[in-house]
Design a protein around this nucleic acid. Sequence first.
RNA 1: UGGGGGAUCGUCUAGGGGCAAGACAACAGAUUUUGGAUCUGUGAACCCAGGUUCGAUUCCUGGUCCCCCAGCCA
Length: 559
Amino acid sequence: MSNSQQVSTDFIRVIVAQDREAGKFDGAVHTRFPPEPNGYLHIGHAKSICLNFGIAHEFSGGLCNLRFDDTNPAKEDVEYVESIQEDVRWLGFDWQDRCFFASDYFERLYGYAVLLIRKEKAYVDSLTAEEIRYYRGTLTEPGKESPYRMRSMEENLDLFARMRAGDCEEGAHVLRAKIDMASPNINMRDPTLYRVRRVPHHRTGTDWNIYPTYDFAHPLSDSLEGITHSLCTLEFEDHRPLYDWVLDECEVICHSRQIEFARLNLTHTVMSKRKLLELIEESHVSGWDDPRLPTLMGLRRRGYPPEAVRRFCEHVGVAKRDSVVEVGLLEHFVRENLNANAQRVMAVLRPLRVVITNYPEGQVEDVQAVNNPEDPGMGSRAVPFSRVLYIEREDFREDPPKKYFRLAPGQEVRLRYAYIIRCEDAIKDEQGEVVEIHCTYDPETKSGSGQPGRKVKGTIHWVSEPHALEAEVRLFDHLFSDPNPEKDGRDYRTALNPNSMKRLQGCRVEPALQGAVAGQRFQFERQGYFCVDSESTAQRIVFNRTVALRDSWSKLEKK
RNA sequence: UGGGGGAUCGUCUAGGGGCAAGACAACAGAUUUUGGAUCUGUGAACCCAGGUUCGAUUCCUGGUCCCCCAGCCA
């Protein structure tokens, strides 16, 4: 990766470079990706992963840790840590031996809390949650000091120890920083540092009855790991004074620098964990790996190459303004990657039977098909051709519009890699539906035979009936029809695209697809990129459409 | 009407007192045995108002609009 692809100098990279030049952190560059193991990763996380691991990779000696911010046992689970690791690896990043957990630091974090109490910079508050909220004041009014704020250091020490020991109920006490109840920054109005949680933790079990909050655990975890630049999203901007306060008051050696950037938003989708969960629970999608979701599991199942996701993340850049990136940009990088790498194959999604009336009955011949015109190294393959074929229904029109370069009565097309055929007749059923067409072929026009002067406007794909494999193909479209599903504060569900998935049964694909394994990617010529779905079996191959090919005909036809 | 951020083509991102750049998207053409790919070209932007200046998108002042914060979530 990152072989000199255009040096993007976003403001964070500029700061990191300046810090290194100024000799801060002894010239070290050490970042971290700090997910909370309470959900699955999505493409917004991919931006952060690429940023953090990318920066570490670009500066010599740079390192990036994977750190689970597991300070809230009520919401977290090992299931998530495993899937997060899998997703980060899939994206192509390696934390080597540096996978850490905030829970690894609980004992030391406790020590820092005790230090703050001894310095009279923290106290045990016994107000209820509602009372604390009331005492906090509002955005425009200062808060009031808790009556417990002046507890003696000894009493605080004792109470805090008893909180740890499990002597109290959830909610009975919390440890608070003693800062300034009148601060215009609400985060500085004596923020909570520790709360009682009588819930087993997925890593520390029942060792602890108290758990540190993000605001306390995060800066100290960064410091403990020697993180130089702690990159997070914009909503933490006004936590930065608190981040710095914690590190200052705890008198740590390494004072990490927090820098905030805008999170990634994409059109035609939603990104929040809550909404993704709702989509699943309400069965609008099948699960976290539904190919229509922006989760990394979903993108993977959809067939998006990790390289394309990385390229996308590099190209959207890093800045501080809120933005919504067009999903078309992501699709562009997917096509770019797949165009270069995917093997071409012919597949007929909506089959229409074609009989080549002048082709000898029972005869079969192989035609040579190029596997990837972008990469001759991928070679070619033999494709069987016979008297009866399938072509795409939409490649035949009884009444062709202008500039329709496909099959119509009396019109000619080339069958890709094979012969030029001419449509002689369309056979209909009682309803008047075309069920089969009869064509004649010109034996002089076999592909590669070089027939000067014999040009046709269109080339269509086909599959030989006796050799075809049957398959199911799932066509995906944007999950939401509106680019912004939450426009005007409406319920995003009202913008769901009812046609975001179409399942096509009875598709006919080239025999070369026999044995294709889950995850394998192909281009179905003239149609798009497809990958073998995880539900695929040897008996029934299932393909997912990753992304359609650009289609200038459909644009033309709309005019 | 407290505090913290932000405003550049349709979208994303650069630039920084002197021709506003790139990518995606759009459009037009060339080419093509994928209406794919490729190539060429075109159109498209500095939130507003004052000020400083020979010159302001950039600097200053004042506005406007947008986002975030009142969890014992992160």
